[in-house]
């Protein structure tokens, strides 16, 4: 019962422990130099109920394993410093959940 369609494999990466108030534009600017390697990205702001343990995250979809490795080497431990001098070191990991939000879904005709 394997009707699994061969979809093009992509590599979803999560960048964790970003500053909670980091604006998306700044992150996108930082990531711009990797754009040839990835095709999509979404950004999740930190959860305020976690107080000082809140961090933002970004999920990036890479087209190739090489692109992903290159990014992880370059960006893991990347330091973000805010105006008060507070430092946040980004952690790059393979995302534990590899599905990507499809842009086209079934129309809901309720």
């Amino acid at each position: 019962k394997s009707k699994k369609k061969e979809r093009k494999q992509t590599f979803k990466v999560v960048v964790r422990r970003l500053p909670p108030l980091l604006p998306e534009e700044i992150l996108r600017k930082e990531l711009a130099r990797f754009t040839p390697d990835f095709d999509d990205l979404y950004y999740i702001v930190g959860d305020p109920t976690l107080g000082k343990h809140q961090f933002s995250r970004a999920y990036i979809n890479f087209r190739t394993a090489e692109g992903m490795t290159k990014f992880a080497r370059a960006f893991d431990g990347h330091c973000f410093r805010n105006a008060k001098g507070l430092e946040h070191r980004a952690v790059v990991e393979v995302a534990p959940f590899q599905r990507w939000p499809r842009t086209r879904s079934r129309q809901d005709k309720h």
Binding site: V14, R16, Y42, I44, L50, H53, F55, R57, Y59, A95, P96, F97, R99, W100, P101, R102, S105, R106, Q107, D108
Partner: peptide
Amino acid sequence: YMYYPTLGVKVVDAVLEEIRL
């Protein structure tokens, strides 16, 4: 999920992050 995959994916992402963090 079948109508709004974005919801499903982002919730699962967040659940796994919650466990990890």
